[in-house]
């Protein structure tokens, strides 16, 4: 449900970029979303289509790149991809770990339409 608010903010940020470049129409918006973020990619895509209607981003491609979670074991510093409810280091079986990847929620790039394209 909070995806709508987050996507609205992404749209605002993309429009700011467009306004910095003569207000060119937006063709593509690229975002990186970590798998540890509690957002649903499909809801974000749907929300983008809805909130971009009637704006300079209407019809733009919403390019969502998922970033796989990666954790460093606090005990032996092995890096691993947690995929279950319990995080267990595959090397030393210690529980938990420090997140190095997977918490991203970033607008990475915006593609604007040029007259000669």
């Amino acid at each position: 449900m909070h995806e709508v608010g987050i996507v609205k903010r992404i749209l605002e940020m993309a429009i700011e970029v467009s306004l910095q470049h003569e207000g060119r129409p937006i063709d593509r918006v690229c975002v990186s979303v970590g798998t540890l973020r509690q957002v649903v990619p499909e809801s974000m895509r749907f929300a983008f289509e809805a909130v971009s209607r009637g704006t300079r981003a209407e019809g733009a491609v919403f390019d969502l790149c998922e970033v796989q979670a990666e954790v460093i074991c606090a005990n032996c510093e092995t890096r691993f991809h947690p995929d279950a409810a319990m995080w267990v280091c595959p090397a030393c079986a210690a529980g938990g770990g420090r997140v190095v990847k997977g918490d991203e929620l970033i607008l990475t790039s915006v593609t604007l339409r040029c007259d000669n394209e």
């Binding site: 987050i6 903010r9 992404i10 940020m13 970029v17 470049h21 060119r24 975002v31 929620l105 970033i106 607008l107 990475t108 790039s109 915006v110 593609t111 604007l112 339409r113 040029c114 394209e117």
Partner: peptide
């Protein structure tokens, strides 16, 4: 025209 942004979406809230 491709514009690199790399900005946290939560920046304003934060």
């Amino acid at each position: 025209m491709h514009v690199e942004v790399v900005q946290k979406v939560m920046k304003l809230n934060d």
